[in-house]
Computed example of a mutant assay.
Amino acid sequence: MPQRTLLFVLFDGVQSLDVTGPLEVFNGAETHTPGTYRIRTASLDGGPVRTSSGLTLVPDQALGEVPDPHTLLVPGGQGTRSSDPLLTEWLRTHGPRARRLVSVCTGAILLAEAGLLDGRRVTTHWAYCEQLARDHPAVEVDPDPIYVRDGHVSTSAGVTSGIDLALALVEEDLGRQAALVIARHLVVFLRRPGNQAQFSAQLAAQTAQRDPLREVQQWITEHPAGDLTVEALAARASLSPRHFARAFQAETGMTPGRFVDRVRLEHARRLLEDTGDGIEEISRASGYGTPEAMRRAFVRALGTAPAEYRRRFRPASAH
């Protein structure tokens, strides 16, 4: 197996965990299978950089001294908001030469500014998805997944999702067992798929300000198989259905139906991952009623059927 060179691009204002998280994953892979990776870090002039948290990172060399890498990884951080034109130009010139382009968090902004994401489906930290889409209309921005892989370009959401993406790349290079060993060593989950939402249903929606609406939100999460029609939920909040629907969306940022859909999908995924319950039982417990209704929801949201989801993401020890 040929050795793969990994280059981490450093700059002032970089998010330290965007660098160290993936770096620890790839270093763990090199320890597990020596000769797999050669990891390098570089800044524009080869000098130290100060991270957004105040740490100082000392790169191995200057970007101009580094041979074209197999995998080019661009982290995010405050420094991406006012990037150096020289760094953008370096990425524009050298990015296309890499076999794999990877960004963590707002590192996607740097890749987009260099024109390397045009025509690609990508993601970034949820707080900057709207900005990325607005500033770069040729880029298809998906705000939901924790990471997206489109051909040789891989982008991830905020901070810790860079670890998930790095594990996925290691699994591609060395196999699932190697990635599992590394995940266990780092005490992280291997089974977070890229299409997992950046937020759980409860976090994706804002918490309602009024007590009755907050109580309805909580009731939904605790009773996914209950009667969750707008009429039934409105009655719990002692509001008319129309007033309830308007107030719920105004205070949570999503419609009651969208919130219910997310809660049920999250509940079903958790049961598929953590239990041996049958598909029919899970579909009833999650409020879908029938396996076919659950299958349609999974395909629509995740692009895969429940049985395939379980096969891919349930720990081997649970089978």
Rank of each mutant, 00 (worst) to 15 (best):
T5V: 03
L7P: 02
D12F: 15
Q15A: 15
S16H: 09
D18E: 07
T20Q: 09
G21Y: 06
V25L: 00
G28S: 07
A29F: 13
E30M: 07
E30L: 10
T31K: 12
T33R: 10
R38G: 03
G47N: 10
V49K: 09
T51M: 10
L57R: 11
P59G: 07
A62E: 09
E65W: 14
E65Q: 13
P67K: 11
P75S: 10
G79Q: 05
L87V: 02
R99F: 08
L101G: 04
V102K: 00
C105E: 10
G107D: 10
A108D: 01
A108E: 08
L116G: 05
D118R: 15
R121N: 00
T124G: 02
W126Q: 11
A127H: 08
Q131W: 12
H136S: 04
H136F: 15
P143R: 08
P143M: 02
P143S: 05
H152Y: 14
S156Q: 00
T160F: 10
L165Q: 10
A166E: 03
A168Q: 04
V170Y: 01
E172S: 15
E172G: 03
D173G: 01
Q177W: 15
V187Y: 03
P193V: 08
Q202F: 09
L203E: 08
A205L: 04
A208D: 01
A208K: 13
A208F: 05
R210G: 00
L213H: 13
E215R: 12
Q218N: 08
I220F: 06
T221M: 07
H223L: 14
V230I: 13
L233R: 05
A237W: 02
P256L: 00
P256Q: 01
G257D: 09
F259I: 02
D261F: 09
R262D: 04
V263T: 14
L265Y: 05
L265P: 05
E266R: 06
A268K: 15
L271T: 02
G276L: 14
I279N: 08
E280I: 04
S283F: 07
T290F: 05
T290G: 05
E292C: 09
M294Q: 00
M294N: 00
A301I: 04
L302N: 11
A307S: 08
A307P: 00
E308Q: 14
R312Q: 11
P315Q: 14
